[in-house]
Every structure is written in C-alpha cells, then in structure tokens.
Amino acid sequence: MTQLALVIDLNVCVGCHACVTSCKQWNTSGQAGPLFDDNPYGQDPTGTFFNRVQTFEVGEFPCTETIHFPKSCLHCEDAPCVPVCPTGASYKRAEDGIVLVDYDKCIGCKYCSWACPYGAREFDENQKVMKKCTLCVDRIYDTTIPPERRKPACVLACPTSARLFGDVHDPESEVSIAIREGGGYPLMPEWGTKPANHYLPRRKTKLRIHEDELVRADNPLRKEDIRHETGKDVTLDDWLM
C-alpha cells in the first residue's frame, strides 16, 4: 500500500517561507482553491495557508539553536481527523494515503480540526469549509506536467531541498531511506496518529585537530629566518685542523 508523504529536513531548512507562498499560489488557483485572504491590505491580515514555517529557539545564549520548522498536514496513517467527521467529507485515500477534504460534503462543523493535534487544518472563512494540505494531489498525478515536476509545489520551490516527497511505505524510496538513515521522526508520536510526514533532525559536522597536526615538517616558517648570514668573526672552525 502506498503512503505518500513529505520528509522535512530540519538540518537544511533555513526558514525562507518559499514553501509557504508556493503552496499558497499553487493551491489558490487549483482544485483546493481559492484560498481566502481577509483584510489583505488592512489591519491584521489573515488568510488560508496550508503550510507555515515557524521558528523555535532551543537552549540559552550562547548555546542557542534556532530551528526553522515548516508544518503542513502530516497525512497521518491513523488520521484522527477522518473518523470524527460526521459527513465523510474528511477522508483518507486508500490508494495513496493522502488525507483530503471533499468541500462539497463538508458542513463546516470544524470538528475534524479539533481532532487534529497538529493544528494542520484551516477553515476557509469565505467558503465555510475546512481546508488543508492536499499533498498537491492536483499536481502529482497531472500527466500534462513533465514527470520530474509532478511533485508538490512546496517541494519544487524549496531552495534547500529540505522537503522530500515520496512513498514512505516503499522501503527503497528516497523518503524511506532518508528516514532510515537520517533518523527521521514523527511529531508527537505519543498520540498514536502515525504521521506519514517525518522530520529529519539537525546533524553537526565537527572538526577535531590533534596537536600534532598543527606543525608539520613542511611548515613554511622553516623556509624563513633559518639562513643566517655567514659570520665574519673568527670561529673554532677556522682553528681546528
């Protein structure tokens, strides 16, 4: 069985928000759109976005880590938002595990969002239906798009390629390998929702220099100052035969 998902590499995410606006522009004009904006030019502008990039700080100065943390729907394998939906508008596709909302069925009761511990759903205040990341279902199967571009908009946009996309059930897929080898982890595993999306942690490259490595035989300083001018004074050398 296929489970499509994103794997987000926190090791390289610089928090640029490219995934945020590329998602918005793809989806506002796509099948999930339009995506509402309220007060776009006034006070407290707000709007429907499927993907946000947040920032966390870990530790205390000077041992601070700044973590940029993108988050969209995690397409949970045991998606708690699905069974609670009274209309069936919220569903998980059997064929690829994408969790979607059928806007035509949604009554806008918001109950599914209560059941999402990740805050990944957004209510469209204009269409009055629940919306969320669709994993760009209207891109990834679109045969009019060149095959290598049949990926979510956010994945294509991401300048650091921090967003990987693929089937986490296929052990040989890029995403599965990344999870396996990069220590990928799910968010809030304690809830048992089994998020399909995974996150790759920060990794550090360190350099240790051994004292012996500092000064080598070819140290350029040896080429300086070692040739002293020939002494003019009489030395023992002049005397000993």
Partner: peptide
C-alpha cells in the same frame, strides 16, 4: 511537538502575524 529534546525550547515565531484559524 517539534521533536527536540531539550529542557528549554521556546517558540519565537508561529509564521504569521495577523492571526489565523
């Protein structure tokens, strides 16, 4: 929530400022 084990983790930005759902 973010998968980082450290006693001191603090959000600095939720990624938008005018509020959301």
């Amino acid at each position: 929530a973010i998968g980082v084990r450290h006693a001191k983790v603090q959000q600095r930005s939720m990624g938008f400022m005018g509020g959301s759902y």
